[in-house]
Design a protein around this nucleic acid. Structure first.
Lengths: 226, 226
DNA sequence: TCGGTAACTCACCACTTGGTACATAAGAGG
DNA sequence: CCTCTTATGTACCAAGTGGTGAGTTACCGA
Protein backbone atom coordinates (compact mmCIF):
# COMPACT_ATOMS: atom_id res chain seq x y z
CA UNK A 1 0.00 0.00 0.00
CA UNK A 2 1.95 3.00 1.34
CA UNK A 3 4.64 2.89 -1.30
CA UNK A 4 7.58 4.86 -0.13
CA UNK A 5 10.91 3.23 -0.42
CA UNK A 6 13.84 4.94 1.34
CA UNK A 7 15.38 5.94 -2.01
CA UNK A 8 14.10 9.52 -1.96
CA UNK A 9 16.65 11.11 0.31
CA UNK A 10 20.23 9.95 0.21
CA UNK A 11 20.97 11.32 3.65
CA UNK A 12 22.72 9.36 6.37
CA UNK A 13 19.96 7.22 7.83
CA UNK A 14 18.52 6.22 4.44
CA UNK A 15 21.81 4.75 3.33
CA UNK A 16 22.43 3.10 6.67
CA UNK A 17 19.02 1.40 6.55
CA UNK A 18 20.31 -2.03 5.75
CA UNK A 19 22.13 -3.14 8.92
CA UNK A 20 20.30 -3.51 12.21
CA UNK A 21 19.36 0.13 12.65
CA UNK A 22 15.91 0.15 14.14
CA UNK A 23 14.47 3.06 12.20
CA UNK A 24 10.76 3.34 11.56
CA UNK A 25 9.70 1.89 8.22
CA UNK A 26 6.14 0.85 7.56
CA UNK A 27 6.98 -1.03 4.37
CA UNK A 28 9.74 -3.01 5.97
CA UNK A 29 7.58 -3.92 8.95
CA UNK A 30 4.68 -4.96 6.73
CA UNK A 31 6.96 -7.03 4.53
CA UNK A 32 8.55 -8.72 7.50
CA UNK A 33 5.18 -9.63 8.96
CA UNK A 34 4.08 -11.06 5.61
CA UNK A 35 7.25 -13.09 5.23
CA UNK A 36 7.06 -14.59 8.69
CA UNK A 37 3.32 -15.20 8.38
CA UNK A 38 3.76 -16.91 5.01
CA UNK A 39 6.26 -19.33 6.48
CA UNK A 40 4.11 -19.94 9.52
CA UNK A 41 0.81 -20.47 7.69
CA UNK A 42 2.46 -22.69 5.07
CA UNK A 43 4.08 -24.69 7.83
CA UNK A 44 1.11 -25.23 10.12
CA UNK A 45 -2.05 -24.34 8.26
CA UNK A 46 -4.44 -21.54 9.08
CA UNK A 47 -5.76 -22.88 12.36
CA UNK A 48 -2.40 -24.35 13.36
CA UNK A 49 -0.53 -21.08 12.91
CA UNK A 50 -0.49 -18.93 16.01
CA UNK A 51 -0.52 -15.16 15.96
CA UNK A 52 1.62 -15.17 19.07
CA UNK A 53 4.22 -17.39 17.40
CA UNK A 54 4.33 -15.19 14.33
CA UNK A 55 4.80 -12.20 16.61
CA UNK A 56 7.63 -13.87 18.48
CA UNK A 57 9.54 -14.46 15.25
CA UNK A 58 9.17 -10.81 14.37
CA UNK A 59 11.54 -8.02 15.20
CA UNK A 60 8.43 -6.05 16.05
CA UNK A 61 5.42 -6.92 18.17
CA UNK A 62 2.06 -8.60 17.79
CA UNK A 63 0.36 -5.25 17.97
CA UNK A 64 1.78 -4.42 14.56
CA UNK A 65 0.04 -7.39 12.96
CA UNK A 66 -3.27 -5.95 14.04
CA UNK A 67 -2.18 -2.44 13.16
CA UNK A 68 -1.31 -3.38 9.57
CA UNK A 69 -3.64 -6.25 8.79
CA UNK A 70 -6.52 -6.08 11.23
CA UNK A 71 -6.59 -9.70 12.29
CA UNK A 72 -5.41 -13.24 11.73
CA UNK A 73 -7.78 -13.91 8.88
CA UNK A 74 -6.94 -10.75 6.97
CA UNK A 75 -3.27 -11.48 7.46
CA UNK A 76 -3.81 -14.92 5.95
CA UNK A 77 -5.61 -13.43 2.96
CA UNK A 78 -2.76 -10.96 2.47
CA UNK A 79 -0.32 -13.89 2.54
CA UNK A 80 -2.37 -15.71 -0.11
CA UNK A 81 -2.57 -12.62 -2.30
CA UNK A 82 1.14 -12.03 -2.15
CA UNK A 83 1.92 -15.68 -2.86
CA UNK A 84 -0.40 -15.88 -5.87
CA UNK A 85 0.84 -12.53 -7.14
CA UNK A 86 4.44 -13.67 -7.13
CA UNK A 87 3.66 -16.95 -8.86
CA UNK A 88 1.69 -15.20 -11.58
CA UNK A 89 4.50 -12.75 -12.13
CA UNK A 90 6.89 -15.63 -12.68
CA UNK A 91 4.52 -17.46 -14.98
CA UNK A 92 4.08 -14.50 -17.25
CA UNK A 93 7.72 -14.70 -18.19
CA UNK A 94 7.22 -18.01 -19.98
CA UNK A 95 8.12 -17.68 -23.65
CA UNK A 96 7.81 -20.73 -25.89
CA UNK A 97 6.44 -19.06 -29.00
CA UNK A 98 9.62 -19.60 -30.92
CA UNK A 99 9.67 -23.39 -30.43
CA UNK A 100 7.94 -25.93 -32.64
CA UNK A 101 4.80 -27.40 -31.03
CA UNK A 102 6.18 -30.62 -29.54
CA UNK A 103 9.22 -28.88 -28.12
CA UNK A 104 7.04 -26.03 -26.88
CA UNK A 105 4.75 -28.41 -25.00
CA UNK A 106 7.72 -30.19 -23.45
CA UNK A 107 9.21 -26.85 -22.46
CA UNK A 108 5.99 -25.54 -20.97
CA UNK A 109 5.42 -28.72 -18.99
CA UNK A 110 9.05 -28.68 -17.87
CA UNK A 111 8.88 -25.07 -16.76
CA UNK A 112 5.69 -25.75 -14.82
CA UNK A 113 7.45 -28.72 -13.28
CA UNK A 114 10.47 -26.62 -12.24
CA UNK A 115 8.27 -23.91 -11.02
CA UNK A 116 6.19 -26.04 -8.68
CA UNK A 117 9.26 -27.76 -7.39
CA UNK A 118 10.88 -24.42 -6.61
CA UNK A 119 7.93 -23.14 -4.60
CA UNK A 120 6.79 -25.81 -2.17
CA UNK A 121 5.47 -23.28 0.32
CA UNK A 122 3.10 -21.99 -2.36
CA UNK A 123 1.80 -25.52 -2.98
CA UNK A 124 1.28 -25.91 0.75
CA UNK A 125 -0.70 -22.70 0.93
CA UNK A 126 -2.87 -23.92 -1.94
CA UNK A 127 -3.46 -27.24 -0.17
CA UNK A 128 -4.38 -25.40 3.00
CA UNK A 129 -6.70 -23.11 1.12
CA UNK A 130 -8.43 -26.13 -0.40
CA UNK A 131 -9.00 -27.55 3.05
CA UNK A 132 -10.93 -24.35 3.68
CA UNK A 133 -12.78 -24.83 0.39
CA UNK A 134 -11.08 -21.77 -1.09
CA UNK A 135 -13.27 -19.52 1.01
CA UNK A 136 -10.61 -16.83 1.34
CA UNK A 137 -9.48 -17.07 -2.26
CA UNK A 138 -13.03 -16.79 -3.54
CA UNK A 139 -13.65 -13.86 -1.23
CA UNK A 140 -10.66 -11.89 -2.41
CA UNK A 141 -11.42 -9.69 -5.43
CA UNK A 142 -7.70 -9.62 -6.15
CA UNK A 143 -7.57 -13.38 -6.61
CA UNK A 144 -10.86 -14.92 -7.68
CA UNK A 145 -11.06 -15.68 -11.37
CA UNK A 146 -7.51 -14.56 -12.00
CA UNK A 147 -6.76 -17.34 -14.44
CA UNK A 148 -3.35 -18.78 -14.86
CA UNK A 149 -1.60 -17.27 -17.94
CA UNK A 150 -0.09 -20.69 -18.65
CA UNK A 151 -3.43 -21.83 -20.06
CA UNK A 152 -3.42 -19.18 -22.78
CA UNK A 153 0.10 -20.11 -23.78
CA UNK A 154 -0.98 -23.74 -23.83
CA UNK A 155 -3.96 -22.93 -26.03
CA UNK A 156 -1.71 -21.21 -28.57
CA UNK A 157 0.67 -24.16 -28.72
CA UNK A 158 -2.17 -26.62 -29.19
CA UNK A 159 -3.52 -24.53 -32.07
CA UNK A 160 -0.16 -24.49 -33.79
CA UNK A 161 0.22 -28.23 -33.24
CA UNK A 162 -3.17 -28.86 -34.75
CA UNK A 163 -2.43 -26.66 -37.75
CA UNK A 164 0.74 -28.63 -38.38
CA UNK A 165 -1.26 -31.84 -38.00
CA UNK A 166 1.02 -32.99 -35.21
CA UNK A 167 -1.60 -32.97 -32.46
CA UNK A 168 -5.08 -34.38 -32.16
CA UNK A 169 -7.79 -31.80 -32.75
CA UNK A 170 -10.08 -32.86 -29.90
CA UNK A 171 -7.94 -31.92 -26.93
CA UNK A 172 -8.95 -29.12 -24.59
CA UNK A 173 -6.24 -26.76 -23.33
CA UNK A 174 -7.62 -26.66 -19.81
CA UNK A 175 -7.68 -30.47 -19.71
CA UNK A 176 -4.00 -30.53 -20.57
CA UNK A 177 -3.27 -27.86 -18.00
CA UNK A 178 -5.17 -29.88 -15.44
CA UNK A 179 -3.05 -32.94 -16.18
CA UNK A 180 0.20 -31.00 -15.95
CA UNK A 181 -0.88 -29.26 -12.75
CA UNK A 182 -2.06 -32.51 -11.21
CA UNK A 183 1.28 -34.17 -11.81
CA UNK A 184 3.35 -31.23 -10.59
CA UNK A 185 1.21 -30.39 -7.58
CA UNK A 186 0.92 -34.01 -6.50
CA UNK A 187 4.67 -34.44 -6.27
CA UNK A 188 4.94 -31.72 -3.68
CA UNK A 189 1.54 -31.78 -2.03
CA UNK A 190 1.49 -35.53 -1.42
CA UNK A 191 5.18 -36.02 -1.02
CA UNK A 192 5.07 -37.17 2.57
CA UNK A 193 2.25 -39.69 2.53
CA UNK A 194 3.55 -41.09 -0.76
CA UNK A 195 6.96 -41.59 0.74
CA UNK A 196 5.57 -43.14 3.91
CA UNK A 197 3.57 -45.68 1.90
CA UNK A 198 5.67 -46.40 -1.18
CA UNK A 199 9.07 -45.43 0.12
CA UNK A 200 9.57 -43.12 -2.83
CA UNK A 201 10.49 -39.48 -2.37
CA UNK A 202 8.96 -37.87 -5.44
CA UNK A 203 11.22 -34.86 -4.92
CA UNK A 204 14.43 -36.86 -4.70
CA UNK A 205 16.95 -34.96 -6.87
CA UNK A 206 18.27 -38.29 -8.16
CA UNK A 207 15.02 -39.02 -9.99
CA UNK A 208 14.18 -35.45 -10.91
CA UNK A 209 15.22 -35.71 -14.54
CA UNK A 210 13.29 -38.94 -14.93
CA UNK A 211 10.14 -37.43 -13.46
CA UNK A 212 10.46 -34.34 -15.59
CA UNK A 213 10.78 -36.45 -18.71
CA UNK A 214 7.90 -38.64 -17.61
CA UNK A 215 5.60 -35.63 -17.55
CA UNK A 216 6.71 -34.49 -21.00
CA UNK A 217 6.34 -37.99 -22.46
CA UNK A 218 2.92 -38.32 -20.93
CA UNK A 219 1.54 -35.11 -22.36
CA UNK A 220 3.13 -35.48 -25.79
CA UNK A 221 1.96 -39.09 -26.06
CA UNK A 222 -1.56 -37.99 -25.32
CA UNK A 223 -1.52 -35.10 -27.77
CA UNK A 224 0.00 -37.16 -30.59
CA UNK A 225 -1.89 -40.40 -30.00
CA UNK A 226 -3.43 -42.33 -32.90
CA UNK B 1 -6.01 -50.35 16.70
CA UNK B 2 -7.70 -52.63 19.18
CA UNK B 3 -9.34 -54.84 16.61
CA UNK B 4 -12.35 -56.31 18.30
CA UNK B 5 -15.32 -56.41 16.07
CA UNK B 6 -18.58 -57.54 17.62
CA UNK B 7 -18.52 -60.77 15.64
CA UNK B 8 -17.32 -62.98 18.44
CA UNK B 9 -20.49 -63.26 20.44
CA UNK B 10 -23.87 -63.13 18.71
CA UNK B 11 -25.68 -62.19 21.90
CA UNK B 12 -28.59 -59.80 22.27
CA UNK B 13 -26.97 -56.36 22.30
CA UNK B 14 -25.01 -57.00 19.12
CA UNK B 15 -28.24 -57.48 17.19
CA UNK B 16 -30.27 -54.83 18.99
CA UNK B 17 -27.63 -52.15 18.43
CA UNK B 18 -29.64 -50.26 15.83
CA UNK B 19 -32.49 -48.26 17.48
CA UNK B 20 -32.10 -45.47 20.01
CA UNK B 21 -31.89 -47.72 23.03
CA UNK B 22 -29.31 -46.15 25.28
CA UNK B 23 -27.71 -49.35 26.35
CA UNK B 24 -24.03 -49.53 27.13
CA UNK B 25 -21.95 -50.58 24.18
CA UNK B 26 -18.25 -49.90 23.98
CA UNK B 27 -17.98 -50.77 20.31
CA UNK B 28 -20.84 -48.55 19.32
CA UNK B 29 -19.50 -45.63 21.34
CA UNK B 30 -16.03 -46.06 19.93
CA UNK B 31 -17.40 -46.27 16.41
CA UNK B 32 -19.53 -43.18 16.88
CA UNK B 33 -16.61 -41.16 18.19
CA UNK B 34 -14.50 -42.27 15.23
CA UNK B 35 -17.22 -41.39 12.74
CA UNK B 36 -17.80 -37.93 14.14
CA UNK B 37 -14.08 -37.30 14.54
CA UNK B 38 -13.42 -38.40 10.95
CA UNK B 39 -15.96 -35.91 9.65
CA UNK B 40 -14.65 -33.16 11.88
CA UNK B 41 -10.94 -33.67 11.15
CA UNK B 42 -11.59 -34.02 7.43
CA UNK B 43 -13.65 -30.86 7.52
CA UNK B 44 -11.37 -28.59 9.51
CA UNK B 45 -7.94 -30.16 9.69
CA UNK B 46 -6.16 -31.38 12.78
CA UNK B 47 -5.63 -28.03 14.46
CA UNK B 48 -8.95 -26.64 13.26
CA UNK B 49 -10.99 -29.52 14.66
CA UNK B 50 -12.09 -28.97 18.24
CA UNK B 51 -12.42 -31.74 20.76
CA UNK B 52 -15.32 -29.86 22.32
CA UNK B 53 -17.12 -29.68 18.98
CA UNK B 54 -16.64 -33.37 18.32
CA UNK B 55 -18.02 -34.04 21.79
CA UNK B 56 -21.08 -31.87 21.18
CA UNK B 57 -21.95 -33.85 18.07
CA UNK B 58 -21.75 -37.07 20.04
CA UNK B 59 -24.55 -38.79 21.88
CA UNK B 60 -21.98 -39.32 24.62
CA UNK B 61 -19.60 -36.89 26.30
CA UNK B 62 -16.12 -35.52 25.75
CA UNK B 63 -14.81 -37.63 28.58
CA UNK B 64 -15.41 -40.74 26.49
CA UNK B 65 -13.02 -39.50 23.83
CA UNK B 66 -10.29 -39.48 26.44
CA UNK B 67 -11.51 -42.73 27.92
CA UNK B 68 -11.28 -44.57 24.60
CA UNK B 69 -8.50 -42.78 22.75
CA UNK B 70 -6.42 -40.94 25.30
CA UNK B 71 -6.23 -37.57 23.57
CA UNK B 72 -6.83 -35.51 20.49
CA UNK B 73 -3.73 -36.69 18.70
CA UNK B 74 -4.37 -40.38 19.34
CA UNK B 75 -7.94 -39.90 18.18
CA UNK B 76 -6.64 -38.38 14.97
CA UNK B 77 -4.29 -41.30 14.41
CA UNK B 78 -7.15 -43.73 14.99
CA UNK B 79 -9.19 -41.82 12.40
CA UNK B 80 -6.33 -42.08 9.90
CA UNK B 81 -5.89 -45.78 10.54
CA UNK B 82 -9.56 -46.53 10.07
CA UNK B 83 -9.73 -44.44 6.90
CA UNK B 84 -6.69 -46.10 5.33
CA UNK B 85 -7.89 -49.50 6.41
CA UNK B 86 -11.23 -49.07 4.70
CA UNK B 87 -9.68 -47.79 1.49
CA UNK B 88 -7.25 -50.69 1.36
CA UNK B 89 -10.06 -53.15 1.90
CA UNK B 90 -11.92 -51.71 -1.05
CA UNK B 91 -8.85 -51.70 -3.25
CA UNK B 92 -8.15 -55.33 -2.66
CA UNK B 93 -11.40 -56.21 -4.38
CA UNK B 94 -10.11 -54.98 -7.73
CA UNK B 95 -10.05 -57.83 -10.23
CA UNK B 96 -8.86 -57.13 -13.74
CA UNK B 97 -6.92 -60.33 -14.35
CA UNK B 98 -9.41 -61.57 -16.88
CA UNK B 99 -9.16 -58.51 -19.13
CA UNK B 100 -6.66 -58.01 -21.91
CA UNK B 101 -3.91 -55.51 -20.99
CA UNK B 102 -5.28 -52.32 -22.53
CA UNK B 103 -8.76 -52.92 -21.18
CA UNK B 104 -7.29 -53.90 -17.81
CA UNK B 105 -5.33 -50.65 -17.55
CA UNK B 106 -8.39 -48.63 -18.50
CA UNK B 107 -10.44 -50.51 -15.92
CA UNK B 108 -7.87 -50.11 -13.16
CA UNK B 109 -7.51 -46.39 -13.85
CA UNK B 110 -11.28 -46.05 -14.01
CA UNK B 111 -11.79 -47.86 -10.72
CA UNK B 112 -9.16 -45.72 -9.03
CA UNK B 113 -10.94 -42.70 -10.45
CA UNK B 114 -14.32 -43.84 -9.11
CA UNK B 115 -12.79 -44.72 -5.85
CA UNK B 116 -11.20 -41.36 -5.18
CA UNK B 117 -14.31 -39.57 -6.29
CA UNK B 118 -16.42 -41.63 -3.90
CA UNK B 119 -14.26 -40.85 -0.87
CA UNK B 120 -13.53 -37.14 -0.76
CA UNK B 121 -13.16 -37.14 3.01
CA UNK B 122 -10.32 -39.65 2.68
CA UNK B 123 -8.55 -37.39 0.19
CA UNK B 124 -8.97 -34.50 2.60
CA UNK B 125 -7.46 -36.49 5.44
CA UNK B 126 -4.50 -37.32 3.22
CA UNK B 127 -4.05 -33.66 2.33
CA UNK B 128 -4.19 -32.74 5.98
CA UNK B 129 -1.71 -35.44 6.87
CA UNK B 130 0.66 -34.08 4.23
CA UNK B 131 0.45 -30.64 5.79
CA UNK B 132 1.80 -32.33 8.89
CA UNK B 133 4.48 -34.01 6.81
CA UNK B 134 2.91 -37.42 7.43
CA UNK B 135 4.22 -37.39 10.98
CA UNK B 136 1.30 -39.42 12.33
CA UNK B 137 1.20 -41.82 9.40
CA UNK B 138 4.92 -42.49 9.64
CA UNK B 139 4.59 -42.98 13.39
CA UNK B 140 1.84 -45.55 13.09
CA UNK B 141 3.14 -49.12 12.72
CA UNK B 142 -0.27 -50.07 11.29
CA UNK B 143 0.13 -47.65 8.39
CA UNK B 144 3.73 -46.90 7.49
CA UNK B 145 4.98 -48.87 4.51
CA UNK B 146 1.63 -50.50 3.92
CA UNK B 147 1.83 -50.21 0.16
CA UNK B 148 -1.22 -49.83 -1.98
CA UNK B 149 -2.26 -53.19 -3.50
CA UNK B 150 -3.16 -51.36 -6.71
CA UNK B 151 0.53 -51.15 -7.57
CA UNK B 152 0.95 -54.92 -7.61
CA UNK B 153 -2.07 -55.31 -9.85
CA UNK B 154 -0.63 -52.62 -12.09
CA UNK B 155 2.71 -54.40 -12.25
CA UNK B 156 1.03 -57.60 -13.38
CA UNK B 157 -0.91 -55.82 -16.12
CA UNK B 158 2.21 -54.08 -17.38
CA UNK B 159 4.04 -57.39 -17.58
CA UNK B 160 1.26 -58.98 -19.59
CA UNK B 161 1.12 -55.95 -21.87
CA UNK B 162 4.87 -56.16 -22.44
CA UNK B 163 4.72 -59.87 -23.17
CA UNK B 164 2.04 -59.22 -25.77
CA UNK B 165 4.22 -56.42 -27.17
CA UNK B 166 1.42 -53.94 -26.66
CA UNK B 167 3.22 -51.80 -24.09
CA UNK B 168 6.61 -50.21 -23.92
CA UNK B 169 9.09 -52.18 -21.87
CA UNK B 170 10.67 -49.23 -20.06
CA UNK B 171 7.73 -48.11 -17.96
CA UNK B 172 7.79 -48.42 -14.19
CA UNK B 173 4.62 -49.53 -12.42
CA UNK B 174 5.02 -47.06 -9.58
CA UNK B 175 5.45 -44.24 -12.09
CA UNK B 176 2.15 -45.17 -13.68
CA UNK B 177 0.49 -45.41 -10.30
CA UNK B 178 1.85 -42.00 -9.43
CA UNK B 179 0.35 -40.52 -12.58
CA UNK B 180 -3.04 -42.11 -11.95
CA UNK B 181 -3.03 -41.06 -8.30
CA UNK B 182 -1.96 -37.53 -9.15
CA UNK B 183 -4.82 -37.10 -11.58
CA UNK B 184 -7.43 -38.62 -9.27
CA UNK B 185 -6.26 -36.92 -6.10
CA UNK B 186 -5.88 -33.54 -7.74
CA UNK B 187 -9.49 -33.47 -8.88
CA UNK B 188 -10.71 -33.69 -5.32
CA UNK B 189 -7.87 -32.16 -3.34
CA UNK B 190 -7.58 -29.02 -5.47
CA UNK B 191 -11.17 -28.78 -6.50
CA UNK B 192 -11.89 -25.49 -4.79
CA UNK B 193 -8.91 -23.39 -5.80
CA UNK B 194 -9.14 -24.77 -9.34
CA UNK B 195 -12.75 -23.75 -9.56
CA UNK B 196 -12.08 -20.32 -8.09
CA UNK B 197 -9.38 -19.65 -10.64
CA UNK B 198 -10.50 -21.45 -13.79
CA UNK B 199 -14.21 -21.62 -13.15
CA UNK B 200 -14.18 -25.37 -13.70
CA UNK B 201 -15.56 -27.78 -11.15
CA UNK B 202 -13.45 -30.88 -11.75
CA UNK B 203 -16.08 -32.93 -9.95
CA UNK B 204 -19.01 -31.68 -12.00
CA UNK B 205 -21.05 -34.80 -12.86
CA UNK B 206 -21.64 -33.42 -16.36
CA UNK B 207 -17.95 -33.81 -17.23
CA UNK B 208 -17.30 -36.92 -15.20
CA UNK B 209 -17.32 -39.34 -18.12
CA UNK B 210 -15.03 -37.06 -20.09
CA UNK B 211 -12.54 -36.81 -17.23
CA UNK B 212 -12.62 -40.54 -16.66
CA UNK B 213 -11.90 -41.19 -20.32
CA UNK B 214 -9.18 -38.53 -20.31
CA UNK B 215 -7.31 -40.43 -17.61
CA UNK B 216 -7.60 -43.74 -19.48
CA UNK B 217 -6.48 -42.17 -22.76
CA UNK B 218 -3.57 -40.52 -21.05
CA UNK B 219 -2.22 -43.67 -19.48
CA UNK B 220 -2.80 -45.90 -22.48
CA UNK B 221 -1.23 -43.37 -24.84
CA UNK B 222 1.84 -43.29 -22.63
CA UNK B 223 2.13 -47.06 -22.38
CA UNK B 224 1.63 -47.65 -26.10
CA UNK B 225 3.64 -44.69 -27.41
CA UNK B 226 6.08 -45.15 -30.28
C1' DT C 1 -28.41 -61.79 44.44
C1' DC C 2 -24.56 -59.52 44.67
C1' DG C 3 -20.15 -57.62 43.98
C1' DG C 4 -16.66 -55.91 40.60
C1' DT C 5 -15.47 -53.83 36.79
C1' DA C 6 -16.24 -51.61 32.44
C1' DA C 7 -18.82 -47.81 30.71
C1' DC C 8 -20.31 -43.54 31.58
C1' DT C 9 -21.49 -38.42 33.55
C1' DC C 10 -20.44 -33.91 35.37
C1' DA C 11 -18.09 -30.30 36.98
C1' DC C 12 -13.94 -28.31 36.77
C1' DC C 13 -9.06 -26.51 35.56
C1' DA C 14 -4.66 -24.54 33.83
C1' DC C 15 -3.26 -22.51 30.01
C1' DT C 16 -3.43 -20.62 25.40
C1' DT C 17 -5.85 -18.13 22.02
C1' DG C 18 -6.94 -14.00 19.14
C1' DG C 19 -7.57 -9.49 20.16
C1' DT C 20 -7.29 -4.67 22.42
C1' DA C 21 -6.87 -0.22 25.56
C1' DC C 22 -3.52 2.80 26.35
C1' DA C 23 0.74 5.01 26.59
C1' DT C 24 4.59 6.76 23.68
C1' DA C 25 8.04 8.06 20.47
C1' DA C 26 9.71 9.24 15.73
C1' DG C 27 9.51 12.10 12.08
C1' DA C 28 7.39 15.36 8.57
C1' DG C 29 5.92 19.93 8.01
C1' DG C 30 5.22 24.33 9.22
C1' DC D 1 10.87 24.45 17.94
C1' DC D 2 6.50 22.62 18.23
C1' DT D 3 2.80 19.75 16.85
C1' DC D 4 0.20 16.29 14.74
C1' DT D 5 0.12 12.06 12.44
C1' DT D 6 1.95 7.61 11.92
C1' DA D 7 4.27 3.89 13.79
C1' DT D 8 5.44 1.22 17.80
C1' DG D 9 5.65 -1.07 22.54
C1' DT D 10 3.47 -2.79 27.10
C1' DA D 11 0.15 -4.85 29.64
C1' DC D 12 -3.78 -7.01 29.74
C1' DC D 13 -8.31 -9.69 28.85
C1' DA D 14 -12.40 -12.70 27.88
C1' DA D 15 -13.37 -16.75 25.50
C1' DG D 16 -12.05 -20.87 24.35
C1' DT D 17 -8.59 -24.87 24.45
C1' DG D 18 -7.27 -29.73 25.49
C1' DG D 19 -7.47 -32.35 29.39
C1' DT D 20 -8.88 -34.48 34.12
C1' DG D 21 -10.63 -35.83 39.11
C1' DA D 22 -13.90 -38.07 41.09
C1' DG D 23 -17.90 -39.95 41.49
C1' DT D 24 -22.11 -43.00 39.39
C1' DT D 25 -24.55 -46.59 36.96
C1' DA D 26 -25.31 -50.61 34.02
C1' DC D 27 -24.24 -55.18 33.25
C1' DC D 28 -21.87 -59.71 33.43
C1' DG D 29 -20.33 -63.58 35.86
C1' DA D 30 -20.36 -66.27 39.94
Amino acid sequence: MTARRPESEPCTDAAAARPAERTRDADRTRAEILAVATAEFADRGYAGARVNEIAEKLSTTKRMIYYYFGGKEQLYVAVLEQAYGRIRALEQQVDVEHLEPVAAIRELAGLTFDHHEAHPEFIRLVSIENIHRAAHLAGSPALAGLADPAVDVLGAILRRGRDDELFRDDVDALDVHQVISAFCVFRTANRHTFRAIFDRDMLDPATRAHQRKLLGDLVVAHLTAR
